[in-house]
Amino acid sequence: LVRYRTISKIPQITLNFVDLKGDPFLASPTSDREIIAPKIKERTHNVTEKVTQVLSLGADVLPEYKLQAPRIHRWTILHYSPFKAVWDWLILLLVIYTAVFTPYSAAFLLKETEEGPPATECGYACQPLAVVDLIVDIMFIVDILINFRTTYVNANEEVVSHPGRIAVHYFKGWFLIDMVAAIPFDLLIFGSGSEELIGLLKTARLLRLVRVARKLDRYSEYGAAVLFLLMCTFALIAHWLACIWYAIGNMEQPHMDSRIGWLHNLGDQIGKPYNSSGLGGPSIKDKYVTALYFTFSSLTSVGFGNVSPNTNSEKIFSICVMLIGSLMYASIFGNVSAIIQRLYSGTARYHTQMLRVREFIRFHQIPNPLRQRLEEYFQHAWSYTNGIDMNAVLKGFPECLQADICLHLNRSLLQHCKPFRGATKGCLRALAMKFKTTHAPPGDTLVHAGDLLTALYFISRGSIEILRGDVVVAILGKNDIFGEPLNLYARPGKSNGDVRALTYCDLHKIHR
């Protein structure tokens, strides 16, 4: 019993810090008490220290592992850092350059016999395009090294910054494609005289377009951006097909006994025919423009016929181009109408809503002055909100995010209106959640004399007048207030005048 009563005193000691020596009952000389009392004092002292730490809000209350900052290894790049964003855009520009100039170089340097010394005699450094290609190869190699040090988000939505895990993730992902696209074939085969082989191998750079397509997928929600990307894709495919079309004609031209190829026909049409040795002929500019003209006309199913396939190889390629053109029509131009419709969806919704308003007016036989006010209010409210119901949009977000959005939407009023000066951010967040926005066209009466005042109004834009009878008592403008002081009276009061809008007004109100 003594032991039980001794232990039962522990909660009292913990909360009230009572010393055991003052209790005459606990001072009985028993061996059990002498053993338990020192333990009680020690526990009391420890609990006292913990309570003191909690009340003082000291940093040592938290466990040590929670006080440590997340460790980022040296030379690790955050995937959302500004440097990584700028670097990704730079790589994107280099990939676009590669997609345009690599097929052009591979096709127009394929057994090209233009006048001038061969590239091997001039030297590697004197070729501007080769120098640019070398810079692109170096940048792609540097990009691989950067990807080995860039964080990523795993399946659990955690940012991984450990170098080993980053390397394994990159090896399992895009490393092989990036490595093949970054191989400097110019340096590996330079001086061997195989410019045709170098041009063909350099087309491996186009593998990076797969990554670019995935990154550009984030802009699919913007109709104008999608339309622009589709047109660029169409032009890029036409450019690639033009390079292939020229390569076919250029390879067949020296081996044909009869002059029936499209390059021969082009030379005869523009007065620059090929001679018996295969030299001469149109310039590279004429060849490229004509090839691009043929691919565009074939892809769009126009086909004027002034550039036509004559050999079997050219006919087979033309059939493939027609098939590609039909697929592009289905996948690209078939979506253009939907994209344009999405661009004008706001206008369509406006006309639909206006039609419903006019049908309501016609069905209920609203008189002319009231009908005009109804239409003007709808037009003004639509121009202010673009038909978007803010309350319906915010309803799907958590309250903390709703408060931040409301604070942002009402920031101008909260910053410049005098009653809100000096208020804490928590108070402003709470008030912003209570605001209701209303609009009024010129001549609209917001409050009639004798109406119950259940709200306090803040003028965000425009001006109003307060009338008693036919006498203008006051004219209020931006950041002015009218209405009933909230919670100042037990019952809502009545208006002693009319409140009429002089201009288009936007008002925020808080109800009782």
Rank of each mutant, 00 (worst) to 15 (best):
Y350A: 01
T437N: 04
M179K: 01
L197F: 05
P367K: 13
D133A: 01
E221S: 07
L236M: 09
E359L: 02
P163C: 05
L401F: 04
F333C: 04
A242D: 01
N410S: 09
L414C: 01
G123H: 05
A181M: 01
F190E: 12
P367W: 01
F294W: 01
N306G: 01
E112A: 12
L94E: 14
N310A: 01
L431T: 02
F185D: 01
L413F: 04
L90C: 07
I72H: 14
R214S: 05
L374R: 01
K172T: 08
D217T: 06
R218N: 04
P184F: 01
H79G: 01
F360Y: 03
Q269E: 01
D186E: 13
H162M: 09
N386I: 04
K434G: 03
L206E: 01
S298D: 01
N368D: 08
D143T: 01
G164K: 13
Q379N: 04
Y246E: 01
A225F: 05
N391G: 12
S161A: 09
S194W: 15
P369Y: 01
Y344G: 10
P273R: 01
N386D: 04
A213D: 04
Y222S: 05
D404H: 01
V212D: 04
L67W: 13
G223S: 05
T233E: 04
S81D: 01
A167K: 01
S194K: 15
A204F: 13
G443Y: 01
R218T: 08
G443I: 01
Y104G: 01
P70Y: 04
L109I: 03
N154P: 03
V393P: 03
P82K: 04
E114F: 11
A130L: 01
A204R: 14
T438G: 04
V160N: 01
L355R: 10
P282F: 01
F108L: 01
N391S: 08
Y222H: 04
V95T: 07
S337P: 01
Y293H: 13
T438N: 09
L92K: 03
I260W: 01
P282I: 01
Q269I: 01
I244Y: 01
I405D: 01
G422S: 10
A130R: 12
F171T: 05
L197D: 03
L129V: 04
R342D: 04
L134N: 01
A181W: 01
E157V: 13
S105M: 07
I141Q: 01
A392F: 04
S337E: 06
Y80L: 06
T290K: 01
R205K: 09
G173F: 04
S297V: 01
N410W: 01
L266M: 03
V142N: 01
R211Y: 01
A348N: 03
N265Y: 01
R342Y: 13
A106H: 01
I244M: 05
F304W: 03
I198Q: 03
A167P: 01
